[in-house]
Design a protein around this nucleic acid. Structure first.
Lengths: 217, 217
DNA sequence: CAGGGGATCAACCGATCGGTTGACCCCGCG
DNA sequence: CGCGGGGTCAACCGATCGGTTGATCCCCTG
């Protein structure tokens, strides 16, 4: 097992951007204590390679064309892979944050993390310690404070659906207000509630989630 | 034929909001020269009533739960109904503007039109003259200036789809820029093009249209 | 090789949005 | 009858968006 080799942590890099993979390899390979065993460009390939080369830590992007990162993590967990997964992604807004951690990710880091932060995070992950970027950590806290969030499948009220339909048509808050005979303030209140229930932060994402869940169209 | 009755124009009011129907009736019934023959709350009912009571002018809302206004207009045109249809809707942003006119609407007026504007528009419609609110008129002009707009089914480039996917995830322009390794300016350019192609004016509506057309999800 | 479309970038501006806080009313449930 | 949820409204603020104009580069096609 590589873990017994005191100094060196073996790594697998998973990202669909060649540029990112090169960048990470360029940072990690020369650094003391890290060895990059390989790279994968998608989730399915990542699972296969992880099982084959058995790295200590997998650096995993979440959004990839060839197999979602969350699915890959879940699959590795299911198969009892030894590797720890450190999610390395671009956005803290990513709605996959919680699913990724639930699926078994050991840590969650943003790509704009400093070099030393990355090193620390990898070492922590290799030891099984959880590392979260501050933004992600705070999201977790709020998620815990309303435990029923994802599970209960928050349902929109009839009025909220009505507002969301107008949003999908491209109406501004003012137009929605006129159309529904209410004030703009009320429209904003409804939207804030909608964002909370759908776990998004803007109208575009709200429309997307609504379509995916069949609330619209 | 009512049209021969010089002074009086007979009307049918079609709107899903009872408040709006009452309001219109309250304005029109007492006014000289107008007689409201009836009201309908949806498109299918509107067609049936129009054929039955034969009004000079149908005041038609476009968005209704029970049968779309555009469909109703098309059906009336197909059946050769004598009545002129004056579309009376809330938004000039309405993407049904052009379809409604194509379907055979004689005029297109916004609900916030002044009382006299409404009267004039109804009289004009009764005589078969086209009446358009300024905002709608300007939309028509721009639509004519790019004749291939609706017909050719403008197709998004791969890059544009990529940007739109990020938008659907709730990413801000800045986040999209970081994620795709381009500048915010470029993201904005892509979005402007997307809006033009999808005939919308904000990201939320773009996401909605994309889902409806199967470009996303 | 000229032209057009796609992709990239910049700078400016007003309009709109989203977050926050706090409030009131009505209704159903216990 | 108190409590919670849904619906309504207000005011403030910084952040973001959308519109506009103009420009460069690359590649493909005619």
């Amino acid at each position: 097992m590589n873990a017994e080799n005191t100094g060196t942590i073996t790594l697998l890099i998973v990202d669909d951007h060649p540029v990112v993979r090169d960048g990470l390899r360029g940072i990690l390979d020369p650094a003391d204590g890290f060895t990059v065993l390989g790279e994968a460009s998608g989730g399915t390939e990542a699972v296969e390679m992880t099982l084959r080369v058995d790295p200590d830590v997998v650096l995993m992007d979440l959004r990839m064309p060839a197999g979602s990162g969350v699915d890959a993590i879940a699959e590795l967990t299911r198969r009892g892979a030894r590797a720890r997964v450190l999610v390395l992604t671009t956005f803290d807004t990513d709605s996959d944050t919680l699913p990724a951690i639930e699926a078994g990710a050991t840590g969650y880091l943003l790509k704009d993390a400093l070099r030393d932060e990355l090193f620390d995070a990898i070492r922590a992950a290799a030891e099984g310690r959880t590392v979260l970027s501050p933004a992600v950590a705070s999201r977790l806290v709020t998620a815990v404070r309303r435990p029923t969030a994802r599970t209960v499948e928050e349902t929109l009220s009839a009025r909220e659906v009505q507002v969301l339909e107008e949003v999908a048509r491209g109406a501004s808050n003012r137009e929605i207000a006129r159309g529904l005979f209410i004030s703009e303030a009320t429209v904003k209140t409804h939207l804030t509630h909608i964002y909370g229930k759908l776990d998004v932060r803007d109208r575009a994402a709200a429309v997307a989630v609504a379509y995916r869940r069949g609330v619209l169209g």
